[in-house]
Amino acid sequence: MNQTAIEFSKSIERNISDDPLNDPNYKTVGEVTVPNAAMTTKNVDVHYGDKQAIFNVSLDVGRNEVLSMIGPSGCGKSTFIRCLNRMNDTIDSCRIEGDIRLDGEDIYSRNMDVVLLRARVGMVFQKPNPFPKSIYDNVAYGVSLHGLSNNKSELDDIVEDALKRAGLWDEVSDRLNQPGTGLSGGQQQRLCIARAIAISPEIILMDEPCSALDPIATAKIEELIDELSQRYSICIVTHSMQQAARVSQRTAYFHLGKLIEVGATDIIFTNPSHRLTEGYITGRFG
């Protein structure tokens, strides 16, 4: 957490008595549900050991929409997005309560296979993390892992298609056998996106995908997100409010583990309802 975020949180604590954050049953401002949602979450609580990280969050991910989540460091937005494909399973002390459904199926039920879930809900991480393998293998790995291709030429087609859709094909088509780690940061991140879309997920989760990239690479990713939203539902956690404003149709503001406000991005960035949202996006103390 950076200094300002700490001060920000402290200033919140100072006025905690008149604060909705003190209310355990705080109700999110704005419409949390959408019709025909790709993913629905209801009353999600997340605990790390004794510490509660997420309080009673309900939020739907609409079909073919880009949903951005913003909020100060430690507000739980990353924790929340990681609940959506059960990446938090790897943390022993993490306990998740509530109802999270993908196409109506409870993803935390015993019938849900986590490997299958992650094939349906792909993820792109903060730091570009290509495997230390060739560009081709990076994209092909998930495909062959799940047995999505019958032969080499089919695999080749899938890899090419994924790289094309990630906007990387023209840059790497002549060096598919070179290591993915040799690409520039922005290319690496697009490679990671290609790796995720190669297995044709329904939803792509992005956890601060541009925080390690320069503005031009960021712009390319944002353009890509825009294109991808034609086919996929995208959830993006970002520290950059401008990015949220640029890429998303809906924006959710998290604060200290609570979902303060959800709304159309246009509204959130011109006339937010909650004073915490306003304080955060205009760069003031709460």
Binding site: M87, R118, N129, F131, I199
Partner: peptide, 27 residues
């Protein structure tokens, strides 16, 4: 071994054992 590699493998749907055998162990 950087956790990002584990996350990457888990993120594309590798099982924990596959993650370790394919990615973590070689590194």
């Amino acid at each position: 071994v950087p956790p990002s590699i584990r996350e990457a493998a888990l993120g594309v749907g590798a099982s924990p054992v596959q993650t370790v055998l394919h990615h973590v162990l070689p590194l």
